[in-house]
Amino acid sequence: MLTIERAIVDQIVSHARADHPDEACGVVAGPSGSDRPTRFVPMANAERSPTFYRFDSMEQFHVWKEMDDRDEEPVVVYHSHTATEAYPSRTDISYASEPNAHYVLVSTRDADTEFRSYRIIDGKVTEEEVTVVGAYEPDSVS
């Protein structure tokens, strides 16, 4: 299950809407091992494409280094689909490379933005429940 704050969901959706019809992408970092996404990091889509995304390699290097320095990890890796449903595509599955991450897919196809989350491990996709909260409970780790 993904537990995520409403404000972060809104930031992801706003980013996806702003970049539509191109795909938007980014991460939400959180303390290592916490499973709690806390720091929203929108990334450039180096492909600038409505059907593909790829993090810019230098931006990714700096963001990953910063997470490492702060003892964080990418708790959420998100991207948008702009003409199809919020379900991982074949390429999403084949390139998924963060086994600890929640892969969030947003679809901006319709006026109502679809927001769904998956685990993608060894080519296997498992959809998971998303619980949106106002604020994380102090001390609790999901």
Binding site: M43, F52, Y53, R54, F55, W64, S89, Y95, A96
Partner: peptide
């Protein structure tokens, strides 16, 4: 802190004291 694609790929020269970082590209469709 440089992507080796912009250096010399596999022919990029390395020496003691360097740090090489491997990251899987984050990509999809």
């Amino acid at each position: 802190d440089e992507d080796v694609r912009f250096l010399g790929g596999l022919d990029t020269e390395v020496s003691d004291g360097d740090t090489v970082t491997v990251l899987p590209a984050v990509a999809g469709g």
